[in-house]
Design a binder for these strands. Structure first.
Lengths: 113, 113
DNA sequence: TGAAATACCTTTTAGTTCGAGGTATAGTGA
DNA sequence: TCACTATACCTCGAACTAAAAGGTATTTCA
């Protein structure tokens, strides 16, 4: 069914990845679980979402990565570049604007005269 | 350039239209301006967004319309059906979930020990 | 031995927002 | 009268992207 453009999710994976990686270096598989817990189980993103976004963010210079062997397996750790930090700020501003706009619209009508 | 899927906008036009039309009957051109003012100028949607969404919502039974001649011009007024009201409730729940999930994720780290 | 968890990845699909462009009438001011 | 703006409807094409499903390979644990 591939529910695309699901309500209110556009830009969300990117924002969450940047936000989490701004706090500390993490690898893909770890991010999948971190997003669930960081959002209080409200948002869950599969690997099919995470990896492509990670790759495109690295391609455009927002993230850098380093491979790190851990007990036979290899993990790819990602961290923010300064460009990524700028991008995070922009997305947070965008989010704030949309969020407050919608709040205003939804709350209206309480004191409908 | 057609910047599509701009951050955080997916589902937003539908939510706002349903919300405004739940308060009172309105026509397309009017909705364009109402969205701007209802969101405190934070969100602005062009006619190229409004009309297609209006049509698809009517097609799926969330809205019904009636034509009304007003001073030589014809306006198409839209209003919610019961299906549209259910849809509005679902979208509001979705929004609430995403909104609180993101707030939690963004606020985290204040008291980072 | 087998199943589950870890860890990486790609491909395909299904939209949906947005800008630009198009038609036509009514109202306004010069 | 002429031009311009506002009103009011609409369509089309492009770009972007979240999600599901499927794929590989290793380690851990019962």
């Amino acid at each position: 069914m591939a529910q695309t453009n699901p309500p209110f999710m556009s830009g969300v994976p990117e924002l969450l990845l940047l936000r989490l990686l701004d706090q500390r270096e993490m690898y893909g598989y770890e991010l999948v679980r971190s997003i669930k817990s960081a959002t209080g189980e409200a948002i869950s993103l599969g690997e099919g979402v995470i990896y492509p976004v990670l790759h495109s963010l690295e391609r455009n210079g927002s993230l850098k990565s380093r491979r790190k062997p851990v007990g036979g397996r290899t993990r790819v750790y990602y961290s923010l570049t300064s460009k990524g930090r700028k991008r995070l700020n922009k997305l947070q501003d965008d989010w704030q604007r949309v969020q407050s706009g919608i709040s205003t619209a939804l709350e209206e009508g309480f004191a409908a005269s």
